[in-house]
Amino acid sequence: MPDLGLEVLWKGKNLIRLLGGLGIALRISLVSVLISIGLGTLLGMVRRKEKGLPKVIMRLYLEFIRIMPQLVLLFLVYFGTTRSFGWDLSGETAAVIVFSLWGTAEMSDLVRGALNSIPVHQYESAEALGLWEKQIYRYVILPQAVRRLLPPAINLVTRMIKTTSLVLMIGVVEVLKVAQQIIEANRMSSPNAAFGVYLAVFVIYFCACWPVSLAAKKLERRWR
């Protein structure tokens, strides 16, 4: 049996530390996902009727956030703000800001798309029945829009969870950072630690994202 370097996981508190790192990553994801869903939904609803300058600004914002690698954004917010404004953001705060900016931009696009994909006839037949605007949204439009929104929104959430692994670059101690620390500390005693530890990281991230996509599949099937 080849040495997979798994034994380092059982040494001391290594596994607990890895899971602790996952906790931080998940906390960053959770906060940013909640902010993104809230703000993104509002923004998406507003953006349906946008035109003129606000439209151009939103377009630029969205393109900028999309084109920039998340890592660059992280550096920009974490180091850039310290340099330019003298702010002393914690790595976690900087991460939440970046992921929220990103998530909000993407989410607003998804929400707008989902609302626009509901045929105008659905509004009209509801109007013709004498329903009030609020009721039309609540009972006719939103339930259909949410069903269409769900798959891409879940996709966004899992991408956000995965991308939290980047925050080690700005000093937040999350999974990958802990992993590297463990590998460093055990370089002499178990040279194969890298494999075992990264395998564990893989499993941990898998366990974090899998339930999300599983739940989404289930909902989708129920609504079909």
Binding site: E124, S125, A126, V140, Q144, W223
Partner: peptide, 25 residues
């Protein structure tokens, strides 16, 4: 009003389609 393409609400069953407006509106 009845439209050419029915315009039923696809996420509701027949009964809920019919009951929505009388009950809510």
């Amino acid at each position: 009003m009845v439209f050419q393409n029915y315009e039923l609400f696809p996420h509701m069953n027949v009964l809920d389609n019919i009951l929505l407006a009388p009950v809510k509106a």
